[in-house]
Design a protein around this nucleic acid. Structure first.
Lengths: 340, 340
DNA sequence: CTGTTAGCGCTTTCAG
DNA sequence: CTGAAAGCGCTAACAG
């Protein structure tokens, strides 16, 4: 069953079938209806390769996702949900998602070649280092690229992520509202956009609340558990330890709670903790971890939309970045509300 | 830069270039070397659509992954790792991975159409219900399909999963070695292959160790946390409660530990717990959860290999199933070794 | 071992 | 509004 067969059976030419099925305005409503009905009846669907070859558009979006990259612990906390959102949004637009293989760093043109090879309509990146030669080469290209949690730069690029800055501020405000005045933070790797923004939000909220900012209250972490343990120990060993800690990632936060417990402190009474990400474990540990939940599914749907906009817009526009709202999930690790 | 251009520059015909680049035996070593070198130099890579159209093979594997399906809690515990393994193994074979959209149940031919549309070389399924009409229609087709943790049936199908039965036996043996004689289990949904196998392994090991099998020691769960809580409560309320519980999934196991603690029991002293899956949280909770780790990455690499074998073999062979080894990860929830 | 010749199944001018 | 014709870039017989 190919387009010629369908054309013959519906008594028109292949060109008309093509037009009808692609929603072109030139076909009369009657012919279109007839063709569409027959196509459905016969189970016809156009061959993707032939269509791509002829039209020079594949309807395929590539996903660039680097496993080896530093992430929030044993796994990207969010690949799963992002994929769900992406898949749904793309298939609504009649597009498909293809997972790109990782190319070696010495193959500078690797991704550019992949994009051409598959005639990709756009690329979504997550967990990659945008400063490597292969990625830079791709970004320099007019192929639409959107970075998730990644600040991208190039002629047709955009970024999608949570509003990490205000999320962090919310976390700090929450602790402040619970009566805390000595609030510390354990950060992520500050060369990563989200980590830097979270620290900025922490500082901004301290300022807004007129709390003193102490350098020794900002300890560097790397999103992995071990750095949460180390960070909490350091904070608790301070002459004037904090009474609350905003930890920029849940894996670190959970490890930090454990570290506090191991040195005889009680969470949240001796030290309150707020995390970031709302990983599964946050609800499973005891006490439950108060944390910031991100809407990862929306990362995906937003990426799909932004990609389409990028394809339509002239490549002269400056890179945009879309910030998504987050949600504070209150559990036990931040104590109970004083005001009740 | 297309094949004709490359052909012109290397002084041969397009056909020869095609042969050289596809590793056909008919080309002389010298010509091949020349062409390959020039291709690399010019950054030529063949257009995937043109190649698919002409050869009727795309090198694309589809991933069928249903989000809505019952899984091990908030997320498939393993999509991430499987994807890593799949991607690596496929790209080693020069194949690609495309994520298939979920088709509505009333579109019986949906997946068959997708497979034809993209000229898929094979399909990997996870988390889908193989009894739905759309999936059954696909399985009836000669397209190679492999199910992960899914017992599939059809002319060109196979299954890949852990050896759940012996893994469960190992868990029970471990508890027995720690001195436990009253060992209960909380199961997964028994219509799922892995859940059924785990129960079978539990029973087999009880028998092997000549332990009495008590019906009231087999309580039904659904892999979700709430059923772990309920299950543990029921077991502890028994006139003769078990001293150890093998829980068929970590989300349930962690909830079960919490339930035990909430009723004043200490884990592992009053009741020992062994889980299954080794989710991230297993190492984060307190006490750490002893559990069975599966090699999910190997699910992916194995699936890629099996798919290739399926494509090569005649479609008359009966469905095969490949069982992968697991690993017992001993933490605190199962107590300490008596023998030391 | 290599070149020539047909397509693969679709879209897209260009005429009408 | 519709049809005819010309490819899209590659592979696969078929000759030589």
């Amino acid at each position: 069953m190919d387009i010629d067969e369908l054309a013959r059976r519906s008594g028109v030419s292949a060109a008309t079938v093509s037009r009808a099925l692609n929603g072109r305005p030139e076909v009369s409503a009657a012919t279109r209806a007839r063709i569409v009905a027959l196509a459905a009846e016969l189970g016809y669907s156009p061959n993707a390769s032939a269509r791509t070859l002829a039209s020079r558009r594949s309807g395929l979006i590539g996903l660039l996702w680097d496993t080896d990259y530093r992430s929030g612990g044993r796994q990207h906390p969010f690949l799963q949900e992002v994929l769900i959102g992406l898949k749904a949004a793309l298939s609504d637009r009649g597009q498909g998602l293809i997972l790109l293989p990782i190319v070696p760093p010495d193959d500078e043109a690797g991704y550019v070649r992949l994009a051409r090879q598959y005639t990709l309509d756009g690329i979504v990146m997550m967990g990659v280092d945008q400063h490597t030669p292969q990625v830079r080469a791709l970004l320099a290209t007019p192929v639409p690229c959107v970075g998730l949690d990644l600040a991208l730069d190039g002629p047709r690029t955009a970024s999608v992520g949570s509003d990490n800055r205000s999320a962090a501020a919310t976390a700090v405000a929450h602790l402040h509202a619970r009566g805390h005045r000595r609030i510390a933070t354990i950060t992520g790797p500050l060369d990563l956009w989200p980590a830097a923004e979270r620290l900025a939000g922490y500082r901004a909220e301290l300022a807004r609340r007129r709390l003193r900012r102490r350098p020794e209250y900002e300890v560097a972490g790397d999103f992995f558990a071990a750095s949460g343990t180390a960070g909490m120990r350091r904070l608790l060993d301070l002459p004037t330890p904090p009474t609350a800690v905003f930890v920029a990632g849940d894996a670190m936060a959970i490890a930090a709670m454990r570290a506090a417990a191991d040195t005889g402190r009680t969470v949240p009474d001796d030290v309150a903790v707020v995390g970031f990400d709302d990983i599964d474990a946050a609800a499973m540990v005891h006490p439950g971890l108060t944390t910031i939940a991100q809407d990862y599914r929306r990362f995906g749907t937003t990426a799909a939309r932004v990609l389409a906009e990028l394809a339509a817009a002239p490549s002269t526009e400056p890179p945009r970045s879309v910030l998504l709202p987050t949600r504070l999930v209150v559990r036990e690790s931040s104590g109970t509300d004083d005001s009740t």
